[in-house]
Write a protein that binds this DNA or RNA. Structure first.
Ligand SMILES: [Zn+2]
Length: 268
DNA sequence: CATACTGCCTGTATGC
DNA sequence: TGCATACAGGCAGTAT
């Protein structure tokens, strides 16, 4: 599943590869992808001016419009010199040189087309929290988010309106690194644990970007390559396997309807 | 207000 | 081998 590091990887690759190029036409192979878009996909034409990321959203500024893309669970955004469609190909952007292809086997992802004003309103509506790699995300800011909340710490980390871009993988990984159980309430964390978690979160996100993300599902970068972060994951997807830190057995439980991995012996 | 639950989807894995 | 069923999960919408 693409989370912040995976989306950031694609954002950086898009910046290098397609910024400044031109969208000639759009082929829409699955109406569901853009069903909630106020402007039709076919209207997107012209120079690709800028690429941004907000939370797990990719923002591609084309002429006077903005493409807003969410990969959700299985979305892929690929750059191809020669068009290579497969059965999961939903949208194809024809560029002056090459193709930008949106694949999504499970069809959870979406693309919306906005004017800049509509984008502003949309971002206001979805109300994302702080970007964890921005300067605004200070230890004090994190303490304010933790506050006195009864919510389980893992669910708080994944709440996009509090901190933007953290999903299932990086929430459990940062909690393992900090030796904190995902089932703890936010308010139960002491000062030292909050500081440790704050540092772990940033450290892991930065490391994951360095390795171009973790391909735990169908994630691929812009060039169709898998991320190299999976070998560095300590708990995600390792149910029943020995903990790298204490040799305990990694456990998996359901928390808020999602698979949650942790080491019951060295996380407290 | 905050938090909890549900449905959307389809490829892959499992069971008979 | 083939068919049926379970499972995975981000997030918008709805319920508590
Ligand atoms: Zn352990």
């Amino acid at each position: 599943m693409p989370e912040l590091p995976e989306v950031e990887t694609i954002k950086r690759e898009l910046e290098r590869e397609i910024k400044g190029r031109t969208i000639i036409k759009v082929k829409n192979l699955d109406a569901k992808v853009s069903k909630d878009s106020p402007i039709s996909l076919e209207k997107v034409k012209g120079r690709i001016r800028e690429i941004k990321r907000r939370a797990k959203l990719l923002l591609i500024f084309v002429d006077s419009l903005v493409l807003v893309i969410h990969l959700k669970l299985t979305g892929q955004l690929l750059y191809q010199k020669k068009l290579q469609k497969d059965k999961s190909t939903r949208i194809v952007f024809y560029l002056n040189r090459g193709f930008l292809v949106f694949n999504d086997p499970r069809r959870f992802g979406f693309i919306k087309v906005f004017t800049e004003k509509q984008l502003k309103d949309y971002l206001q509506k979805v109300d994302y929290g702080i970007e964890p790699l921005s300067k605004k995300f200070t230890l004090d800011a994190f303490k304010k988010i933790i506050d006195n909340r009864e919510t389980k710490i893992k669910q708080l980390l994944m709440d996009q309106s509090k901190i933007a871009g953290i999903g299932n993988v990086y929430s459990v990984e940062s909690l393992f690194e900090s030796r904190i159980l995902p089932t703890r309430t936010a308010k139960s964390l002491n000062e030292k644990e909050i500081t440790t978690l704050y540092k772990a979160l940033r450290k892991i996100l930065i490391k994951a970007i360095k390795y171009k993300g973790a391909s735990v599902d169908t994630y691929l970068d812009l060039y169709g390559k898998k991320g190299k972060m999976v070998p560095f994951l300590k708990v995600y997807g390792r149910e029943g396997k020995p903990c790298f830190r204490c040799k305990g057995k990694i456990k998996r439980i359901m928390l808020g309807g999602r698979g949650t991995y942790f080491c019951p012996s060295c996380q407290k």
